[in-house]
Every structure is written in structure tokens, then in C-alpha cells.
Amino acid sequence: MHMETKSPYWVFPTVKRLVTLFYYLVLVALVLFAAMSSLKLLNAQTGPFPLGQGQQPNYVSVPVAWAPPSNKTIVTADEPLLFLTPQKQTGQLQVPIRSIPGLLISILGLVGLVSALWMFLLLRRIFRSVQTDTPFQAAIARQIATMGFLFLGQTAVELLLKLALWHQTRPYFKQITLSNQASLSVDIQLDGPWLLGLILLALAQVYRRGIEIQLENELTV
């Protein structure tokens, strides 16, 4: 009982500080990423950037995967039967940042960092606005809804960028010959935080209902 009584008083400030910490960490990452991309675009980088070890100067990495087109499941001879499905091999294709795939990869990175920074900014505003005596506020409901739309928008933008990246990298693969007639393709997942966006939109509606109930109780009292 003692811990349950005390927990809200230390949990809330701790989470609030963590949100602020992550906000500034993402902000620093965004500034460094933008600086690195700008240097590469200007051909001003003469060596590996601190966050780009292993990359050629003025190049960016595109995740790729390859596997023989006739992969077959391997079955053991002894009982119980075991099945092994060979997985694709993955790697990094380094392309000039001034190429279309290079620009698309850079934009994808910026979209992810800007979305994360925006999300933590909204979380900071929520933690600053919430009050223990009046937790339901219209501003918080709007911020939760904004986060939901943010995740849905991020998913849509990333989907379009990844489809464009898949199309634009195909000519590059024709210049690369792999053994065993392996097929090469961009290793990207066409997904995004759309499910979290829908959950937040539903949560915003529940929160608005809480505001209505709170107003009804205040009028009743």
C-alpha cells in the first residue's frame, strides 16, 4: 500500500524527465544527420563522418538483400523431422548522395527523425499540461490526436518514398553480378507506425469523452 501511494509522485516526474531527455537526444541526432547530409551534398566531406564509419565520402547506404531464386527448405533425415528455411543475405549498397536513391534515403532519414522529434515535443507539452486534479483537458486531447495523424502521415510518406526507392535502384542492380544467379533487391519493409496512429486517434476520442464526463460532474457538484 505504501509503494502504491508513493508511486505516482516519483513515476510521473521520472517519465517526464525521460521524455525531455529523449527529445534533446533526437534533436541532436537530427542536427548531426542534417549536417552530415549537407556536407555530402556539397562534396565538402573528405573523410568518414563520425556517424558514418565504413561509408565512402559523399555516399549513403541503401539496405539490399539477395538470395538464389530457388531456395528450398532443408529437412533432416532423423526423427523428429527438423525444417530449415534458408534466409536471404543482406548488405549495404553505397550510392552517391547526389543520385536519386541517395536523396531518397536521406529524405527517409529526415522524415523519421523529424517525426520522432515532433512526437517527443507533443509528449513534453502533454506532461506540462496535465494536472492531477483536472487530468482531462481539451488541449491534451488535441495533442494526442495530432500524434495519431502524425504517425499516419509518416507511414504514408515513408511508403511513397520506399516505393520510389525500390523503383529508382533497379538500374543500379544491373551493374552488379552475383554468383549462383542470385537476385538482388532493396531490403526495405513497406510498413510504418500506422497502427499506433489509429490507437492514438481512438484514445483521443476516449479522452474527449472523459472531458465531457468531467464537465458534467463539475456542473452536478
Rank of each mutant, 00 (worst) to 15 (best):
L103D: 03
Q87H: 04
N71H: 05
A67R: 00
V75A: 06
K72M: 14
L93V: 12
N43I: 05
Q53D: 09
A67W: 04
I107D: 05
L39M: 15
Q94D: 06
Q56V: 04
A44S: 09
S70Q: 13
P63N: 05
G91W: 10
K72Y: 08
V64Q: 03
Y59H: 14
S99D: 00
V60T: 14
L51N: 01
I100K: 14
G102F: 11
P101W: 06
Q45R: 10
Q87R: 15
S70V: 11
M36A: 15
M36H: 01
G102C: 06
I105R: 01
E79R: 09
G109E: 08
V60G: 03
A34M: 13
L42N: 14
P80H: 12
N58A: 07
V62Q: 07
A77M: 07
Q53T: 06
I100Q: 13
P63D: 04
P57Y: 06
S61H: 03
A67Q: 07
A34Y: 11
M36E: 14
I74Y: 12
L39W: 10
L93N: 10
P96Q: 01
P48V: 15
G109M: 10
Q94S: 04
S38A: 13
Q94T: 04
N43R: 14
Q92W: 07
L39S: 11
I97N: 02
P48H: 01
M36Q: 09
Q53H: 02
Q45Y: 11
I105M: 13
A35Y: 15
P101D: 07
F83E: 13
Y59L: 02
A65T: 02
Q94W: 02
P48N: 01
P96N: 04
P68D: 02
Q94A: 02
T76C: 12
S37T: 14
A77S: 15
I107E: 13
V60I: 11
P80N: 00
Q56W: 02
A77P: 05
A44K: 15
I100G: 00
T90Q: 11
Q94G: 07
P63G: 02
E79C: 05
Q55V: 01
P86K: 11
N58C: 02
K40D: 08
S99H: 03
L82D: 09
P86H: 06
P86Q: 01
L110H: 08
A35C: 13
G109V: 12
S38F: 15
G109C: 08
R98M: 09
I100F: 00
L93T: 14
G91T: 14
Y59Q: 08
Q92P: 06
N43D: 11
I100Y: 03
W66V: 00
A65I: 01
T76L: 10
Q55N: 10
L108K: 13
V64P: 09
L108G: 04
T76Q: 05
Y59R: 07
G91H: 08
K72A: 13
Q87T: 10
L41K: 09
A34S: 08
Q87A: 04
G52V: 00
L84F: 14
P50L: 05
L41A: 07
N71K: 08
L104Q: 04
S38M: 11
I100V: 11
A77E: 15
L103V: 00
L103E: 04
S61E: 01
L51C: 05
A67S: 14
P57W: 04
P48E: 07
L82F: 10
P96S: 14
L84S: 08
L39N: 08
L81Q: 15
P50Q: 09
S61F: 04
M36P: 00
